[in-house]
Design a protein around this nucleic acid. Structure first.
Lengths: 200, 200
DNA sequence: GCACTCCTTTATCTATTATTCGACAAATAC
DNA sequence: GTATTTGTCGAATAATAGATAAAGGAGTGC
């Protein structure tokens, strides 16, 4: 590739690591530039602003993520919750830092992230509702289902929102697969989704 | 009380709200002072520093929280996971903003919060391990149990780490109780803890 | 009245922030 | 070869950050 992309990618890579460690507000563009061995001005040059840099990271995470959910929705015949869970966990684990930092920033009330990513979140919720409860129906979700969905997402996100409690020390493809296996088996003992789905 | 405490409490209250909304780094002491209608210098006067203010908030959350867990551990006779879950959920929900902001800051890698609160977290983990798996034993926790504990904590924290997916609009004692009831019932369908505990 | 402590204010200091500007180099187009 | 785009750099800007110093005010004890 031309030199543009190598610099750009280096910035994205470093930004991801630093945003993950220190948060968006806790990371200065100078920190990123220094760590990536590039000039500060280049960040504005490539991403317009610090926010634009964050936006690039966010899009690079959510686009493939939602694609997984959409593909799962299309393959109606051999769909199981377990296979969905495994695919999501695998994706999140291979993008560990992004998963962590994005959901953290999303928990803020005012930051732009919320306005920027609200569309993605709405889409995710819609797909989850369809996949778990009421395929192709437009019925409004009720309080209990809402909480159940929250628990389901909580289980999927726990490893990435509580880094103090779990951090894969190896991070090889094998260790990721092992994590996915054990974690999804434990999740299969969570029966609320099935019970609510069957009730309909 | 004398005027000290009214000012101090006002600062704590506003700080909690702003830290919750904008994060620690995203909130300036000037913002807090303005919103609380006090002079900026008073924050240094009462809490020494911005970090000291955060520390006061953190302690005020974790001390009563761990007390709940310790009391639960002592009453060995009538202990059930369900009653534990309800007590924790009720406490967290009545301290909604604190729950949310503290666990968010804890997910950062470098911030002082981690060093400051690591003791609390270790204690929480220890008590959970005893309560859920191996009362009074010192056996090292294994990988599967570790992930199970992670899922358990993920379920307990989900409502407070994903404010986009759940926010009680009323926040009365009645609505909190209703939430605790429905949420804990759904959680009771998560059988991994019981299965692992029985295996021993 | 005097000394003392506690609370509050005004003003200021130093460091760091994101962003922008103008200049320079290198590659590409023609 | 010349012109033009593309990438890079150093310096500067204006705003804001947390923290502090010095002094005034209010109440209390004596």
């Amino acid at each position: 590739m031309n030199r543009q992309n190598v610099t750009r990618d280096k910035v994205l890579d470093v930004a991801c690591r630093l945003f993950y460690s220190n948060g968006f507000k806790g990371t200065s563009v100078r920190d990123i530039a220094k760590e990536a061995n590039v000039n500060v001005s280049l960040i504005s040059y490539y991403f317009n602003s610090k926010q634009g840099l964050f936006e690039s990271l966010a899009v690079s995470y959510f686009e493939p993520y939602l694609e997984i959910l959409e593909n799962e929705q299309l393959s109606e015949v051999d769909f199981t919750i377990d296979s969905l869970v495994r695919k999501i966990l695998h994706y999140k684990q291979t993008n560990y830092q992004l998963s962590c930092l994005l959901y953290r920033e999303l928990s803020l009330n005012t930051i732009f992230a919320k306005e920027m990513l609200v569309t993605y979140l709405a889409k995710e919720n819609h797909l989850f509702s369809q996949l778990l409860f009421q395929k192709s129906s437009h019925r409004e979700i009720n309080y209990k289902e809402k909480l159940c969905l929250l628990q389901f997402k909580g289980l999927l996100n726990a490893p990435f929102m509580m880094p103090n409690d779990f951090m894969d020390p190896y991070f090889t493809e094998a260790s990721i697969n092992h994590f996915v296996k054990v974690y999804s088996e434990l999740m299969s003992n969570y029966k609320s989704v099935q019970k609510l789905a069957a009730r309909v």
